[in-house]
């Protein structure tokens, strides 16, 4: 490039301005008002949006976990069992199903979930966990053959 004066040379930012700005404006296409078209306003909004997106990745996981917990509590209460006891009993039986899978079973495979609750209840009353007696008599029909230890 040919610069006729030294100040012009120093002030030159380079030929890539269009591409740098286009990269930002591509991300602000769905924003409101001037934030989607004017670069200096868009760049601030885009940076905030990206920061929120970064922070939200952990929050999404937290939210999903809280939802699964709420759903599983509801599903256990329906069978008159306690969610905390169920988790403890299942881990003692070495049934390492996570919250996501348990929720899917509770919603789409309710009979399987019921049998899991029954199994957990048997194990909890066998181990004498805190709070099992208050729930009443354990359900019948669980054949363990002494294998859940």
């Amino acid at each position: 490039m040919v610069f006729r004066t030294f100040p012009l040379f120093v002030r030159n930012r380079g030929p890539d301005e269009l591409w740098r700005k286009r990269r930002i404006l591509k991300l602000s296409a769905h924003f409101h008002g001037r934030s989607r078209n004017c670069y200096s306003i868009a760049v601030r909004a885009v940076h905030r949006a990206l920061v929120y997106a970064t922070k939200a990745r952990a929050l999404k996981k937290e939210d999903m976990r809280a939802l699964w917990d709420a759903r599983l509590t509801a599903a256990c209460e329906e069978h008159k069992f306690s969610y905390s006891l169920m988790r403890e009993s299942l881990s003692r039986c070495n049934i390492l199903l996570n919250r996501k899978v348990l929720t899917d079973l509770a919603i789409w495979e309710p009979r399987s979930f019921k049998s899991l609750v029954k199994l957990a209840w048997s194990r909890a009353s066998q181990d004498g966990l805190n709070g099992v007696k208050e729930l009443g008599e354990e359900p019948s029909g669980v054949i363990t053959r002494g294998m859940i230890k």
Binding site: A75, W108, P110, S112
Partner: peptide, 13 residues
Amino acid sequence: HPSIQGPWSPFVN
């Protein structure tokens, strides 16, 4: 077919 046993409803249990 997400469910084999039938999805949950208030009448299932």
